Amino acid sequence: MRAAVATSQSAIDPLSCLELLDVAVPTPPPGWALVKVVASSLNMHDLWTLRGVGHPAEQLPRILGCDAAGYDEEGNEVVVYPIVADADRGMGDETIDPLRSLLSEGHDGAFAEYLTVPRRNVLPKPTGLSFDEAACLPVAWGTAYRMLFTQAQVKAGDKVLVQGAGGGVASAAIMLAAAAGAEVWATSRSESKRAEALTWGAAGVVETGGRLPAKVDAVIETVGEATWAHTLKCLRPGGTVVTAGATSGMNPSADLGRVFYQQQRILGSTGCTRHEMIALLRMLETTGVRPVIDRAIPLDEIHKGFQLMIDGAITGKVIVHPNHEH
């Protein structure tokens, strides 16, 4: 089968480290399932792996791709929960299992015609979702769902700020929070992405660092250094920041005086649990909310897709079709 494989790592030229290779169809071990991949999607995580961030070189070569939707061995339409973990080790929460592994980390990922995952990771795909839509959800939308509803405890009527409206997690957070009845504000340096955020349900948009009309109850933060000071200034006393990434840098000024004097809460968040992903699928079924797809490409064009991501030239998700018949 054809697969997109990380064979080396380079901070300067990450895409030179991604090769399209013919590899053997995997054989699932006991308790695992074989999934025929209809659609996957690109994530920043794949680029971090190619750049050598957070992925040990000794774990190469590795088929990349964290998201997958397709068919199980019985021909059922499925979507793959992306975290391989033991919920018991995480006290009932897979995301804090110290041995957890995202697809494409300890196990080959979804940029291939077939992949294997534990049977508990194979979930029924809602009939109202296309394969392309389902393939957007596991990482970006699962992350956004947990940030909003588990960590920040967002509810109808809350004011929520989402920093960096163009990103995959941020765009998902805008749509999910709006669907839940929150008043959502979004920032972006890009005028076109601010306009897009309004179509996704944002009540208002401002330029990055711009003044909001009122303090917010929660901030969804994936940008990091570039927006951190603004995030804390926009948060009401007792409010919550949830951070799940730092694309602009990992070392912002903490402004600890503001944090303790205003009793602000800063929570980290990574991925989602299997239960949260099931709840996310149910929410999309009942609300009609759907992910934004920038484009769909065949596996042979995956380098082009990643270059568009690097250039910031996409809005929404880039879908990859590993099987030629799709």
Results as ranks from 00 to 15, higher is better:
residue 71 Y to D: 04
residue 193 K to D: 00
residue 188 S to D: 15
residue 187 T to R: 11
residue 231 T to N: 00
residue 269 S to V: 05
residue 288 G to T: 01
residue 222 T to L: 08
residue 230 H to R: 01
residue 63 I to Y: 13
residue 55 H to R: 12
residue 84 V to A: 04
residue 311 D to P: 03
residue 15 L to N: 13
residue 137 L to S: 07
residue 213 P to Y: 12
residue 164 G to E: 07
residue 289 V to K: 10
residue 44 M to G: 09
residue 98 P to R: 13
residue 257 G to V: 13
residue 104 S to W: 12
residue 290 R to L: 07
residue 316 G to N: 03
residue 50 L to S: 14
residue 41 S to I: 13
residue 118 P to K: 14
residue 302 I to T: 10
residue 165 A to E: 14
residue 308 L to R: 14
residue 318 V to N: 11
residue 193 K to H: 03
residue 197 A to Y: 12
residue 229 A to L: 06
residue 138 P to T: 09
residue 30 P to M: 02
residue 195 A to H: 13
residue 169 V to E: 12
residue 34 L to E: 12
residue 195 A to Y: 00
residue 238 G to V: 00
residue 263 Q to C: 07
residue 39 A to M: 04
residue 212 L to H: 09
residue 171 S to D: 04
residue 51 R to K: 14
residue 36 K to Q: 12
residue 12 I to C: 09
residue 188 S to W: 00
residue 97 D to H: 00
residue 235 L to R: 03
residue 242 V to P: 06
residue 109 G to T: 09
residue 252 P to H: 02
residue 139 V to M: 14
residue 248 S to A: 04
residue 89 R to F: 02
residue 26 P to H: 12
residue 232 L to I: 03
residue 35 V to W: 02
residue 14 P to T: 13
residue 11 A to S: 09
residue 66 C to I: 08
residue 128 G to F: 11
residue 153 Q to V: 07
residue 242 V to L: 02
residue 218 A to N: 02
residue 293 I to H: 09
residue 296 A to N: 06
residue 298 P to H: 05
residue 313 A to C: 03
residue 103 L to F: 07
residue 246 A to T: 04
residue 124 P to N: 10
residue 288 G to R: 10
residue 211 R to T: 15
residue 82 P to Q: 10
residue 79 V to R: 07
residue 197 A to E: 05
residue 84 V to L: 05
residue 94 E to F: 01
residue 299 L to E: 05
residue 5 V to W: 11
residue 113 E to Q: 15
residue 87 A to Q: 01
residue 67 D to G: 06
residue 198 L to T: 01
residue 310 I to R: 10
residue 304 K to S: 15
residue 112 A to C: 01
residue 216 V to H: 01
residue 249 G to N: 00
residue 239 G to E: 00
residue 289 V to Y: 08
residue 43 N to F: 02
residue 156 A to P: 03
residue 101 S to D: 04
residue 123 L to D: 01
residue 118 P to I: 01
residue 114 Y to H: 13
residue 261 Y to T: 13
residue 99 L to H: 08
residue 204 G to F: 13
residue 80 V to C: 15
residue 295 R to C: 06
residue 51 R to Q: 15
residue 63 I to W: 04
residue 312 G to W: 00
